[in-house]
Structures are given as structure tokens and as C-alpha cells.
Amino acid sequence: MPLHIIATIKQVMDPETPVSSYKVDSESKQVVPTTQIPPVINGFDENGLEAALRIKDTMEDVKVTVLSAGSHFVMDVMKKALSMGTDEMVLVQDDALSNISDSMVTASVLASAIKKIGHFDIIISGRQASDWDNAQVPLILAEMLGVPCITVTRKVEVKDNEIICQHITDNGYQVISAQLPAVITVSNELGEPRYPNIRNIMAAARKSPTTWTLDDIGLSTEKITPKLEILDLYVPEKESQCEIIAGDDEEDAGRKLAMKLRDAKLI
């Protein structure tokens, strides 16, 4: 049996979208882009895809399945995961999954989909998603599946049914290992995700994702009722209080800044 890696990805609003280009819909408590800025695959999830593909590069007989859950997928965006060189894609697509920001719900949807997929050795996720930054889904998913979890890794190796990772700490890293099957999360320090090459783009064009509804994976709408309720979502108002320090020229401004900081007893 091949070593089966499931890489989870999330379609998110492009985090580079400036605040001026989206608004908060107070009714649905969602962030809505006001311009036609396409969504992206969450950046850390792309690092996760890269981690999966590096394992595939270095080992014989590895299969990488991409898994995502959501209500509306922009296929041109999602296909990038296949074009990078992964083998298959499973999408859980259901209207009931719009605006889900509760980690428990996301994890239970992924867990049910993974059970339907069947055998897996490694689940790889990005360390957190750039919209809600919860960084909890992979840990809860590991808990639901009853497997170990190694978070925030920058190097991943598989050896003799064991996964060995460099887990980033505040002042360096730890080498942590676990028996497979396991869940790991990947950080941007792992390295840039690869660009799709022509061969993989062609191969991806011939692949179509398997799409399941919640019903298909044995979940009902009641089972995905969020435990967390969003009462309010707003853009905090910032009043600029910046005093711009000018001088005769830029050097003079630098000197005046030093004086100002001294007067304010900051230095």
C-alpha cells in the first residue's frame, strides 16, 4: 500500500487585500471583499502541500490527496493544489459550510471526510489559516482521529513508519517524532511552495475533484452547529495621532526625531 498523505487546504480571502477593499457585513457577520479580488489557498496550507510533495519526491510509492471543505470553491484557485503535483482532490462542498469559523465544526467535517477516504498515514495542514487564525483544527482533528499531532514544523522526514519533524520554538527548534499515522502542521519556514510545472498543470487539467456533500460523509446540519457564536465583527476605528517630524532635509528630520524622543523621555 502506498504511503498516503492527506493535505488539508482552505480557500481564504487574499490576506493582502487592503482594508479599503472589503467590508464587514454586520448582518451575516462575515468579511466580504468589495472588489473582484480572487481568493487564495491559505499560505501556510501551500507550505503544507510543499511538505507533502517533498516527502513524495524523496520516497517511493507516495500518494498525496488534497482535502478541503467549504461552501463555494473557485476551481481555478483550488486546482493549483493539483497543479503543484498532488494526486487527487476531495472537496466537501455544502451550503451549510458557508461562514464556518468554529474550529470544532471544521475539524468534525474533515474527520468525517477522512474516515470516508479511508486509510491514511499522514495528515498535513498549515499551522493556521489567515482569516480566523485559530490554529486549532489540526489539533482537534488529531484528537478526533486518535492520532498524535506535531505542530508548527519547518522540516519533515518519514522513516520506518515514523515521522520526524523540526518543531519551531521561541528560541530555536525541537526534533519531535511520532509513530504513523499522525497529523502535522507546517509553517512558512519550511520553504516556498513550488510553482506548478507544465507537466503537472497538464496532468491536473485532466483530473476532476471528488465532491461530497455533508450528507455524503454522514453529517447532518445539526451535527455541525457551531459551539461558538459570533456576536459582532467589526473593523476597529483607528484615529491617526502621528506627528510627522520634518526638517530642512532628511538628515535634519532624523536629528529632530532624536530630540523629540528625548523630550518625551523615551530615550
Binding site: 483607528k238 491617526s240 495621532q241 502621528c242 506627528e243 510627522i244 517630524i245 520634518a246 532635509d249 532628511e250 538628515e251 535634519d252 528630520a253 532624523g254 536629528r255 526625531l257 532624536a258 530630540m259 523629540k260 524622543l261 530615550i267
Partner: peptide
């Protein structure tokens, strides 16, 4: 950054920084 800053200098750091350091 100027929205969050209390003091700001708009300029080329290559010129501002050495003068700031020297004055400090």
C-alpha cells in the same frame, strides 16, 4: 504604519537613520 505611529519621519532611511543614530 503611520496610522499606528505616534511619531513619523517620511524619508529615505539611508539618510534619516545615520543622523538619528548620531544625535542619539
Amino acid at each position: 504604519i503611520f496610522k499606528d505611529a505616534r511619531y513619523g519621519v517620511v524619508g529615505d532611511w539611508k539618510k534619516v537613520l545615520p543622523a538619528l543614530t548620531e544625535q542619539v
